[in-house]
Design a protein around this nucleic acid. Structure first.
Lengths: 207, 207
DNA sequence: CATTCTATTGACACTTGTTCAATAACGCCA
DNA sequence: TGGCGTTATTGAACAAGTGTCAATAGAATG
């Protein structure tokens, strides 16, 4: 088993090779945890020697970071910055782009989440940056505070809302029975104003 | 530094030893990630041989699982099951117990979250169980559906709400400036009904 | 105090991470 | 077409960590 077919080495350009290894890393990470993503495994799957991985990434840690960063960059890039329109509609657009990304790139997204949460400080920072990139848009879109006033509580709530949103997509993708995509999107988009409205002492009034 | 003082071995009962090792594991996990929690490190910190760890836990994986399970059990046990009263008040009680637990046991809780998210299937299951144990109470408390109807969307929302709640405490504990404990609790408790009310087609009406 | 039970050790085999000098693909130029 | 230099790639050797097990030595018991 695992019969080695290639006796000739294939020589790629650094960019190609690097890209190939990162893609493979992201793909593999979807079905196993970070510390199960060994150099041995990756080298074998990629059909290269362990040494080459070190040539490109220097260490296992650094490779892991690069993989997670790759997943994060993908997310930010492919989640198109929202078009213009009224705030609530833009919010829906953002959320839709996000959900669609997760649906089509489920594995990659899982890599990001899993890798980040369990890993070291650097990994978590990468993840935090990605999340900020997404949620900051919301504040930027809503500069007039039509939906969200910029207070400590609101900031906290947006953060919480982001976590909720993430959990919602992931859970829904795994088991969508009984909930349509549109319902999911509606819930996500409507949640944010609803949550902000909950703050006691807020002009809009709460519970 | 780290001068080895003990030349005599100390012999404990299996329960004592096991407990000591798990406690130490949880404590160490607070300041490093799971895969930085090596057998070597733990053995040295505990002042025992590596062999003893294998005697008690069989493998590194199994030890990690035991540590995470320990943290989960702690959480469930110390978060007292809610007293009786009206649903909304019971919800607040639940949430309060949860927040207070996280505040006083921050490190242990972090171990649970970090360990679970990054780890293998088993670790994630342990975490899921803990979360279910907490949220299932809410459905149980609210058997009449006074707050939450038992539908697929609601189930999903409660799940999302749990994720949000977790994010809120963790973020708040790290930086509580501008938000009092009572505000936090109010937001958390009020969020759930607010979120459920957001569902389109729900009798209570939505956005 | 000797004996027995078993918690604990330490040394050894094996897996996985890391380094580095040697190798061989590919583009270039004659 | 065929040699040549560049450098992507390898494989062997080393380090560090994981897992195994027969031997050791606390503590209780008589």
């Amino acid at each position: 088993m695992g019969s080695v077919t290639a006796t000739t080495r294939t020589r790629l350009t650094p960019e190609e090779r690097r890209s190939q290894l990162l893609d493979l890393g992201v793909r593999l990470l979807a079905t196993r945890s970070l510390d199960e993503l060994s150099i041995d495994l990756l080298a074998e799957e990629a059909g290269i020697s362990r040494g080459l991985l070190y040539h490109y990434f220097g260490s296992k840690q650094a490779f892991h970071e690069a993989v997670v960063r790759r997943a994060a960059d993908d997310l930010i890039a492919q989640t198109a910055p929202p078009a213009d329109g009224e705030p609530l509609e833009r919010l829906l657009t953002s959320v839709t782009a996000y959900v669609d990304y997760v649906v089509t790139n489920y594995e990659g997204y899982l890599s990001l989440v899993k890798g980040a949460a369990g890993g070291n400080e650097t990994l978590r920072e990468i993840y935090e940056e990605a999340r900020s990139a997404l949620t900051d848009r919301i504040f930027r879109e809503d500069a007039q505070g039509e939906i969200i006033p910029d207070t400590p509580v609101s900031r906290l709530i947006v953060r919480g809302w982001a976590a909720m949103t993430e959990e919602l997509v992931l859970a829904w993708v795994v088991d969508p029975t009984g909930v349509t995509r549109e319902e999911l999107l509606a819930v996500m988009a409507a949640s944010l104003p609803a949550l902000v409205a909950v703050v006691p002492g807020d002009p809009r009034g709460g519970a």
